[in-house]
């Protein structure tokens, strides 16, 4: 029960490891960026799910509601907005680097680039 009760963390870990694996195992530079994205997204989910409180509602203050209303913690959500922006920026820089690499080397495969570097 305890294991299943924390299924959100399992999702986070599985996603994280998937992303991590793609980053390490794939030789295609674009796929690496995608892996990196999955890796980062898993952390977003981790933050968001941690702000959830059982029985809590969305953290919107309602006029006249009594004090017993439980809100979910909004702070992690806000943080993740920032983190998403950072993630998007990283992806953008990463992809534009890949474009430049493609222009310079004519390929986006890691091993081919390595070969080209060794030749010169």
């Amino acid at each position: 029960m305890e294991l299943l009760g924390q299924f959100n963390y399992w999702v986070f870990i599985v996603l994280m490891m998937t992303g991590f694996y793609v980053v390490i195992a794939r030789g295609n530079l674009v796929k690496k960026i995608v892996g990196l994205n999955i890796f980062q997204a898993s952390v977003f989910l981790f933050y968001i799910s941690m702000g959830k409180i059982f029985g809590g509602t969305a953290p919107i203050l309602i006029e006249g509601a009594d004090d017993t209303v439980i809100y979910s913690n909004p702070l992690p959500h806000v943080l993740i907005l920032t983190a998403i922006v950072v993630g998007v920026a990283t992806t953008a820089v990463g992809l534009s680097l890949v474009v430049r690499i493609n222009e310079a080397y004519g390929t986006v495969e890691e091993d081919e680039i390595q070969q080209l570097d060794e030749e010169t």
Partner: peptide, 13 residues
């Protein structure tokens, strides 16, 4: 370019 890319991946991790 490849150096920056490598740094980007590891830095982001």
């Amino acid at each position: 370019l490849t150096a920056a890319y490598q740094y980007l991946v590891l830095g982001t991790i």
